[in-house]
Simulated scan of single mutants.
Amino acid sequence: MSTATARPHAAVWIEIPADDLDRAARFYGTILATELRREQIGESELAILPYGEAGSGGAIVKTPDMAPAANGTIVFLNCDQGLDRVLARVETAGGRIEGEVVTLPGAMGRYARIRDCEGNRVGLHERG
Rank of each mutant, 00 (worst) to 15 (best):
I31D: 00
M108G: 04
A6W: 09
T73H: 12
S44K: 07
A6T: 03
A11K: 01
P64G: 11
P17T: 00
R26S: 14
D84W: 05
E15L: 12
G123D: 06
I97Y: 06
A67S: 11
G55C: 08
I31N: 04
I41Y: 09
T5L: 15
Y28G: 08
P8N: 10
L77S: 05
A93H: 11
P8M: 06
L87F: 12
R38T: 12
E35N: 11
E91H: 13
L21C: 12
A70M: 08
P50S: 10
G94K: 13
L87D: 11
Y28N: 11
F27M: 14
E43Y: 04
T92E: 15
E15S: 10
T63L: 01
G119H: 05
G57C: 07
R113E: 07
D22A: 15
A112H: 02
V102I: 11
R23D: 09
G119M: 08
K62R: 11
D84L: 13
A70N: 08
G109S: 10
I74K: 03
G109V: 09
M66Q: 08
L49P: 01
D116S: 02
R110H: 04
R7D: 01
G82E: 13
Y111H: 05
A70W: 01
H9K: 04
D84Y: 14
Q81F: 11
Y28C: 09
A11M: 12
R115T: 00
V101F: 06
L21N: 05
G95V: 07
Q40S: 07
V12E: 15
D22V: 15
A25G: 10
T73E: 02
R127N: 14
I16F: 02
I31C: 04
E98F: 00
R127V: 14
G52V: 00
L87N: 09
L32N: 05
S44T: 14
G106V: 02
N120I: 03
C79S: 11
A10W: 03
V61T: 14
R23Y: 12
A47W: 08
V61D: 01
R7I: 00
A69G: 11
E100M: 00
L46C: 04
E118G: 04
V86T: 10
R85I: 11
G94W: 07
L87V: 14
L32E: 07
G109E: 08
R110W: 09
E53W: 04
R110Q: 05
A11D: 08
S56H: 14
L87W: 06
D65Y: 06
I74F: 06
V75F: 13
V61Q: 12
D116C: 02
L21E: 13
A33H: 12
L104N: 06
G52I: 00
E118S: 01
T30N: 07
M108Q: 06
R110V: 09
N78A: 14
F76G: 09
C117M: 03
R26C: 03
R115A: 06
E43S: 15
